[in-house]
Write a protein that binds this DNA or RNA. Sequence first.
DNA 1: CAAATATGTGACAATAATGTTACCGGGGAG
DNA 2: CTCCCCGGTAACATTATTGTCACATATTTG
Lengths: 240, 240
Amino acid sequence: MAEDSTILIVDDEAAIRDVVGITLDLAGFDTIKAANARDAHVSIIDQKPDLVLLDWMLPGGSGIELARRLRRDEVTSNIPIIMLSAKASEDNKVQGLNEGVDDYVTKPFSPRELVARIKTVLRRVNAKQRDSHESVLQVFDLELDPTSHRVTIKDKLVDMGPTEFRLLKFFLQNQEKVFNRDQILNLVWGANVYLEERTIDVHIRRLRKALSKVSGTSINYAKLIQTVRTAGYRFSIRST
Amino acid sequence: MAEDSTILIVDDEAAIRDVVGITLDLAGFDTIKAANARDAHVSIIDQKPDLVLLDWMLPGGSGIELARRLRRDEVTSNIPIIMLSAKASEDNKVQGLNEGVDDYVTKPFSPRELVARIKTVLRRVNAKQRDSHESVLQVFDLELDPTSHRVTIKDKLVDMGPTEFRLLKFFLQNQEKVFNRDQILNLVWGANVYLEERTIDVHIRRLRKALSKVSGTSINYAKLIQTVRTAGYRFSIRST
DNA sequence: CAAATATGTGACAATAATGTTACCGGGGAG
DNA sequence: CTCCCCGGTAACATTATTGTCACATATTTG
């Protein structure tokens, strides 16, 4: 699984920036670098990294200051921070945790450890957000259960690929509304992908086929996914 | 027997923290340190120590306060607490025990005594959990008995490692729900481990293999552990 | 009706995700 | 101390899925 998370590295030593940067690049992260607190602040507002690696010992004590500021600011307060420090001082550590820093890595560190800690922090943060129970989406006898990650029609399992699952979920959440292919690409695949628009047609096809395979139903669920010529697709329980 | 328990030391005096820390490290415990109640709280949430060593006399009476808070909080209420105190006042002791503190050690204390008391408390707590009858989990002819730490299929013993046992127990307690690898790491291994996600796949494999080895059953129990591509794993009695 | 445009459909190769095996190192038991 | 078990990881094998193309079919336009 690719780590598409973006990490901001803040350190005044170019050497450290490079080493850390290469390490994280290899681990599959996107990286941004900043040499001082001011640049870092700009970058954070600009790029919204998923995590900040912050040198404790920035000139003028600006490292800890930045951490404090990030915590206070509404926009950045939930971006996890990992502190880098030249030496393992318990006092630093305690103070850091006090400022809401999420973890603490002392230099010198192994690339392994650094990557591991980053992953752990990201995991912890994500886990917190992910505990919310999503409810079952349903239309007539069709049910999509995000929790068990299953689609059933009259309790019979519907077999489909991951993309079709996401697509169906999207349609169930946005019925009666037409989406053009651009929108579907953005909303189901996410921004920052470049794909042929026709790709969508193929997945629509696959989804329809999956829904059709289920026997013993009076309703043709594939028909609920309607083609709106020149405009896109629409999921609707009303006939065309 | 190895003490892999983690002890959180809360004391405002660095000297005490160090002495106690070294003592416990030598005794084979993992230690975390905190200087004040606030740090301690963060650490507890974060690291889930197995026991808290808490100085009674934290500035502002925050020691006793922290103890109270930990007892009230659902998540921390079953973490045992040992109080450290400068002098043995019967009043303090009574009050402490009132707050649900598990034991009481007066400074100065010998390393021997401290370690002994910690072990005693941990043993007591573990015993309590052992006695509290966790019910046998079962699915068809498969039974997992948390008390005897055994898994059987049709009364035939299923041989598996400790990790596989915990994994199976987790799945039996959370059926029909998909968990991604992040979640499984958090919920089965704990929040503070740095592991490759692929490690899970290997343990899944080992668990499936263990379940398959049992002969003379119409049901393939290994199949109950289902792979949900791109989403994780799911334990389910329904066919995929 | 023919041309032009849009969507449906099946096949295919590249890729990503998972299954599987083997190895290494640490730690307890003897 | 050595042996053995176990957990974690890397390396390789296998499988499912993805995106794209080429062509078929349908709809619109003039």
